[in-house]
Each structure stands twice: as structure tokens, then as C-alpha cells.
């Protein structure tokens, strides 16, 4: 085959270009830590990596959600533990009032103390975490629990004794109109259990409920005998009946207080169970984030050992091509003429 000089130099230049490109590409991969970044360089790996990236960003969100829920639960737990202690104290006071030998004045003092304890519970009932009332359903802004001027206990401005509950939530009768209780909704947070919804309602087993309904915890409405189910109203009644000393009424309300305390402890245990469930979930999410990261790095990351050997190979090839150029290009028969 006849090899013209132009062929030799063109081929040589293309070898040189290839060697230099390989050299530059390897260097870039090593510097960036990525095998490639442009989607067209490896479409299948890149689209997989993008999908995993979307999943990973969700998992990171779940992780944040779980952390936030944990903190909120621990705030709730603190508040409820304190309330539990106070409830114990109230019962002791009722007992000592009933067995008191110091007469009306002694009972009145104890009645005042019970009222003070009730107000203390109110403080805890309105505990906030991150500007949200942990026992206030979906309330934000104003404290959900309060007393009106005549001593009625209110939830979001509604008398709790008038509140009822059915399948579609809490309500009260405004005349003959059924009216929903504001801010009594439930808040669910997606923690990666595969959230699903029916209409605009989150299916309760597909997400974590983070709102604790204060109505459920502190009681609402009245029982069949027309006695309040609400702890604050019970305490008010206890204090009033102690002042007036209606022994039967005090007995009734003390019984209700005891049974209420039982129920309340149930909620407290429930929080403990939720906390440990969240720890499990948190570990699982951490694991999956790690998995996603390693998958992404496997797909687009650089194999250090491979790139290192590529680099020395490139170096060798480039030097070889350069020295070949120095040897080949200028030599012709012309150089051997005398």
C-alpha cells in the first residue's frame, strides 16, 4: 500500500488527539469523583441514578419528618407526664378534704389548691412545639384551651360540654345546625409507609398521626347523668362542691377523676409505644438512604482503582505517541541523501 505523507501525519494527529482526550477525560473523572455527569454519556445508568435520587430525596424528607415527630412526641410526653403527676396530687387533696377535720375553712383552702392545680394543667394543655399546640389538633395561633368569664371550659371558643363526636368528627349543635369544631382535625405526616388517601382524608394506617386531640385526651360532652366528661370541668366541679361541701357530688366526681386518670395513663403509654416505633422507622430510613447513596455512587461514581490504572496507562500511551511522532514524521529518504 502506498502511504502518503499526508496520511501519516493525519493518522498521527488523530492518535495524538485520542490519547490526549483519554488523558483529559480520566483526569476529569478523578477530579470530579463521577464517572460521568451528562445524561447522554450513559443514559441507562443516568436515568436509574435520577430515579434513585428522587427516592433518596423523599427518604431524606421522611427522616426529617420522623425526627420532627419524635421531638414533638417527646414534648407531648413531657407535658402529659407533668399532667399525670398533677392528677395524682388532686386525688390526694380530694381525699384529705373529705377526711378533713378543719371544717369548711380547711376544705375551702383545698378547693382553692385544686383550682390552682387545674390552672397548672391548663398551662401544660397549651404546650407548644414549633409554634404548634401539641394537644390542640390542627390549632395554630391562639391557644386552643381556655376558660370564659363565667368559668366554662372552652375548646377553640366552644364549650366542651356541648361537644359531641361521630364518624365525621367533632361537632356541636348550634340551635338545630350541626357545626364542626374548628381545628379538631388530625394531622398525619408521611414517614414512608406508602401514604394513601381516601378523598381528601389520609388513611390512618398509611401515615403517622402527629396531632393529639386535646378533646379526646381531656374529655368532652357529658355522661348519661349530665355530668361533665372533661377533666377541667370535673376539677371545677370538685372545687365548687368542696367549697359548698356536697359530699355525694364530691364522691361522684372523685370517682370520675380516678377513672379519667386511668384513661389518661393509657394515652401516656401509647406515646411511649409510638416513640419506640419511630426509632425503628428512623433506623430503617437511615438504612435506605445509605442504600440509595451507595447505588448512586455505584452507577455514576468512579472506580478509583480502575481510574488510577487508566491514568498511568494514558500517561504511557501519550508519551509513546509523542515519541513516535518525533521518530516518524521527519524521516524520509531525503534525510539519507548526501
Amino acid at each position: 500500500m502506498r502511504i502518503s505523507d499526508r496520511q501519516t501525519s493525519r493518522n498521527y494527529l488523530s492518535y495524538l488527539e485520542k490519547a490526549k482526550t483519554a488523558y483529559a477525560e480520566t483526569n476529569e473523572r478523578i477530579a470530579s469523583g463521577n464517572r460521568f455527569t451528562r445524561i447522554s454519556d450513559d443514559v441507562s445508568a443516568a436515568t436509574k441514578a435520577l430515579r434513585i435520587r428522587v427516592d433518596k430525596s423523599k427518604a431524606e424528607e421522611y427522616y426529617d419528618n420522623v425526627s420532627a415527630v419524635s421531638e414533638q412526641l417527646s414534648t407531648t410526653e413531657d407535658a402529659m407526664t407533668s399532667i399525670n403527676e398533677i392528677l395524682g396530687k388532686v386525688h390526694t387533696k380530694v381525699l384529705s378534704a373529705m377526711n378533713s377535720t378543719s371544717g369548711d375553712s380547711g376544705r375551702e383552702t383545698l378547693a382553692d389548691e385544686i383550682e390552682d392545680l387545674r390552672d397548672e394543667i391548663l398551662q401544660f394543655a397549651n404546650t407548644t412545639y414549633n409554634d404548634m399546640f401539641v394537644l390542640g389538633g390542627s390549632s395554630a395561633g391562639n391557644a386552643p384551651f381556655s376558660f370564659d368569664d363565667s368559668g366554662n371550659f372552652l375548646y377553640n371558643e366552644i364549650d366542651v360540654n356541648s361537644i359531641e363526636h361521630d364518624d365525621s368528627g367533632y361537632f356541636y349543635m348550634d340551635g338545630t345546625t350541626r357545626t364542626d369544631i374548628p381545628m379538631s382535625g388530625e394531622i398525619y405526616v408521611d414517614i414512608g409507609l406508602g401514604i394513601s388517601m381516601t378523598g381528601s382524608n389520609v388513611d390512618s394506617d398509611s401515615a403517622m398521626k402527629t396531632s393529639y386531640s386535646g378533646l379526646e385526651i381531656f374529655g368532652y360532652g357529658e355522661d348519661d347523668d349530665g355530668n361533665t366528661n372533661n377533666i377541667f370541668n370535673m376539677l371545677t366541679q370538685l372545687s365548687e362542691n368542696l367549697t359548698d361541701y356536697d359530699e355525694d357530688a364530691v364522691g361522684t366526681y372523685d370517682d370520675k377523676l380516678l377513672s379519667y386518670t386511668e384513661t389518661f395513663r393509657g394515652y401516656l403509654t401509647d406515646i411511649g409505644a409510638k416513640t419506640s416505633f419511630l426509632d425503628t422507622i428512623k433506623n430503617r430510613i437511615t438504612d435506605s438512604i445509605d442504600t440509595y447513596e451507595s447505588q448512586i455512587s455505584r452507577l455514576i461514581g468512579v472506580d478509583d482503582a480502575e481510574e488510577a490504572s487508566n491514568q498511568s496507562m494514558n500517561d504511557y500511551v501519550l508519551k509513546a505517541v509523542l515519541s513516535m511522532g518525533a521518530d516518524i514524521i521527519p524521516v524520509s529518504l531525503m534525510d539519507f541523501l548526501n
Binding site: E61, N65, D190
Partner: peptide
Amino acid sequence: LYTNLTTFIQSPTS
């Protein structure tokens, strides 16, 4: 958007 929406879901009246 997902992150911010999730934050909002936790404080839906804020």
C-alpha cells in the same frame, strides 16, 4: 416543592 409542602403539612395553618 416536596420538602416545603411536607413542612407545611405539619403546620397546616401557619
